[in-house]
Structures are given as structure tokens and as C-alpha cells.
Computed example of a mutant assay.
Amino acid sequence: MEMNFIGDPFFYVAAIPAMLIVGISKGGFAGSLGMIGVPLMTLVISPTQAAAIVLPILCTMDIMGLIAYRKTAHWRNLLCILPGAVIGIIIGAFSFSYLNDDYIRLLIGLIAVLFTLNHWLKLRPAKTDQGPSVSRGTFWGSLSGFTSFVAHAGGPPLQFYMLPQKINKTLFVGTSVWFFFVVNYVKLIPYTYLGQFSLENLSTSLVLAPLAPIGIWLGVKLHHLVPKELFYRIAYVLLFATGLKLLWDGRNGFLQIF
């Protein structure tokens, strides 16, 4: 296959750290901060192209994660949230043609800013011992599926559903791994149908793919070597600044709404 990848060096200034952070997150160090990947890349390319380039790499990372957690998941919760996630993906696919780049920048920027403020202000789901719920699972699952389709940012809605249950940490991670494994591979279908996997996008994904195992390896190592507090401070500031920049860049979409 002829290689026709993105040649702009500024793209890789954003894409390389973005993919490493995603890998570090998948390696169990940075939690939902893996969602920083698309916002960072959106600073130099369109949101739809950034999402298309990232998805094949996510699918590769998901296989690695599933090897480690193939037998670990809260299966009842998965039955509650996966149908909703598929609904969210379908909504995202059918609304794709109505979401121009400015709208998507606004959405990604808003998710990034709200996720950061949620962390800084210590906002959390209600601390009640809730169990699996079809109604709540469908709501949060569909929201996760939609935000995952648009910007691979399905982590926060999933957390708002799962955290109040206070399940075992390992079981929580395993359930997340299984959830996003299914979600990301389902997304391949509408992404292909919508023509997102151009030769340039796939070639660029292939160029960035070696960063997947490197990032995951770093995530495992950093877990033992680097204070999480320092990493989180830097990453959240970066995510917040990126979100504000995307909100500013997408302001024309806001003006079109009103």
C-alpha cells in the first residue's frame, strides 16, 4: 500500500505526545486523561480527521488491554451499558453530516473543560451504593457512546455510571477495558461507511501505531516511578488549556446556533 501520511511536522508535535498519553492511560496510569488525544490533535487538524486517525490505534491498544483483563469484568454492568453505547454510536453516525468542524470543536472543548473542572472542584457522582441499572446504564452508556464516536471521549460518562457502585478497582478497570473494546470496534463500521478511513488517515495511523505499545509500557512503568499527583497536575492543565483553545476556535459554531 502506498504511504500517503500527513507530512506537516507541527502535526507530529501534537500527535506524538497525544498518542503517548493515550497509551499511558491505557497502561493504567492516567485514567480518563486518555481523552486528551483528540483535543490535542484537533489543534492542528480537523476534529473528524483526528478522530479517524486515532481510532485504529485505540483498537490496537484495546487488544493489548483485553489480553490482560480478558477474564475480568462486571458482566451484568456491561449488559446494562453496552446497548446504550450502541444507541449513542448510531446517533453520532446519523448526526455526523450535521456536525461541522466548529460544532465538533465546541463539543470536544466543552467536554475537556467540564472534565477538568469536575476534577479540580472535586465534583463527584452521589456517594450511594448503587448497583447495576438498565435505565441509568442506558442513559450514561448512550452518552458515552456518542461522545466516544465524536471525540473518543467516552470515559467521563462511563465513570459517572460506574463510580457510585464502588466496585473493586480491578473489576472497574476490567469492565472499562471490555466496554471500550466493544465500543471502539463497533465504531469501525460507521467510520468506514462515512468514508473516514482515507489513505492519508490510515497511513498516518500506521506511522503513529508504534507509539501504542510504547505508551502502554510507559503507563506501567510510570505507575511505579512518577508521583501521580505531578503527572495529573500537568495533564489537567494541558487538557483545560486545550479545551479553552477549542472553544475559542469553535466560537463560529456557537454564533451559528444563535
Rank of each mutant, 00 (worst) to 15 (best):
V86G: 01
L206Q: 03
I108M: 06
N168K: 10
T128E: 14
I111M: 09
I63K: 01
V13S: 03
L33I: 06
T42I: 11
L55F: 11
I91K: 01
A235Y: 05
S205R: 02
Q130P: 08
W178T: 00
F146Y: 14
L230D: 08
L43Q: 04
Q165Y: 07
A52F: 10
M41Q: 00
L194E: 04
G109F: 11
G88R: 02
G155D: 00
R136L: 14
V134Q: 13
V134D: 06
A18S: 02
W120R: 12
S97I: 05
S148V: 13
T242M: 08
L123W: 15
G219I: 02
V207N: 05
P132I: 01
P156A: 08
P39I: 02
F11G: 03
H152L: 10
T72F: 07
K122R: 14
G65T: 02
D129G: 08
G34M: 00
V183E: 01
S133G: 06
M35H: 03
N184M: 00
F11A: 01
I234W: 05
M35L: 09
H74W: 08
H74E: 08
Y193V: 15
F29I: 00
S46E: 05
T128S: 12
L211Q: 02
F181S: 05
W140C: 08
I257V: 11
F160M: 12
G243N: 11
G195W: 12
P47L: 04
V150D: 03
G195C: 09
F231C: 05
L238H: 10
G65F: 02
T147C: 14
L208I: 15
V177W: 04
H74C: 10
I167V: 15
A52I: 10
L188G: 07
V177N: 00
I91Q: 06
Q196H: 14
I87M: 02
P156Y: 05
M162G: 07
A212Q: 01
Y12G: 03
N100F: 11
M61N: 05
S97R: 11
Y12I: 03
L194H: 09
L43H: 00
S142R: 08
F172M: 15
G92T: 00
P132D: 06
D101K: 02
L114W: 14
S142W: 11
N168T: 10
P132Y: 06
G219M: 04
F231P: 04
T116F: 03
S198G: 13
L208C: 05
F29N: 09
I234M: 01
Y98Q: 07
